[in-house]
Design a protein around this nucleic acid. Structure first.
Length: 113
DNA sequence: CATCTGACGACCG
DNA sequence: GCGGTCGCCAGAT
C-alpha cells in the first residue's frame, strides 16, 4: 500500500462529506493499515488538492494534534458538515470510498486455465 | 539491514 | 463514555 493510493482516494471525497482512515484502508484492502493512511495524511505535501480535512477517525471523531484538529473542524463546517455533535454523523456525512482498482501488483499474465 | 515512530482501530477496565 | 494497551503497515533514520 503506497500513500499515493491513499491520496488518490481522498481526492475523491465529495465536498460536504467525510470518510474515515479505516474506510480508506479497507477500500485499499488494508484493514490494518489505518495508521498508514493517517500517516499518509500527515505527510500530505499540501496544496496538492488533497482534502485531508475530510478524513476523520473511526466513529466520525477528530483525533489529531492541534492545531490541525481545530483547522479541520473549521474546514468541515465550511463544507456544511455539522460538528455540533460529539462526533460527525457518519450516517449522514459518511462517504464510502470506491475501490480505485485492486491491481494485483504486476500485470502478470495469468497462464491459460 | 534492523529499529523506532506515527493525523489509527479495536478491545479491556 | 473515556483512557490505556496491543496490533497493524509503511516510512525514515
Amino acid at each position: 500500500m503506497s500513500w499515493d493510493r491513499v491520496y488518490r482516494l481522498v481526492k475523491q471525497i465529495p465536498r460536504g462529506h467525510v470518510t474515515t482512515y479505516g474506510a480508506l484502508a479497507k477500500a485499499l484492502r488494508e484493514p490494518g493499515g489505518a495508521r498508514v493512511v493517517g500517516y499518509a495524511m500527515a505527510s500530505t505535501p499540501g496544496g496538492q488538492g488533497i482534502p485531508w480535512h475530510r478524513v476523520v477517525s473511526a466513529g466520525g471523531k477528530i483525533k489529531m494534534p492541534e492545531p490541525h484538529a481545530s483547522k479541520q473542524r473549521r474546514l468541515l463546517e465550511t463544507e456544511g458538515v455539522d460538528l455540533s455533535r460529539a462526533s460527525i454523523d457518519m450516517d449522514r456525512y459518511g462517504w464510502v470510498p470506491r475501490r480505485p482498482k485492486p491491481r494485483k501488483s504486476k500485470a502478470k499474465n495469468k497462464p491459460v486455465t
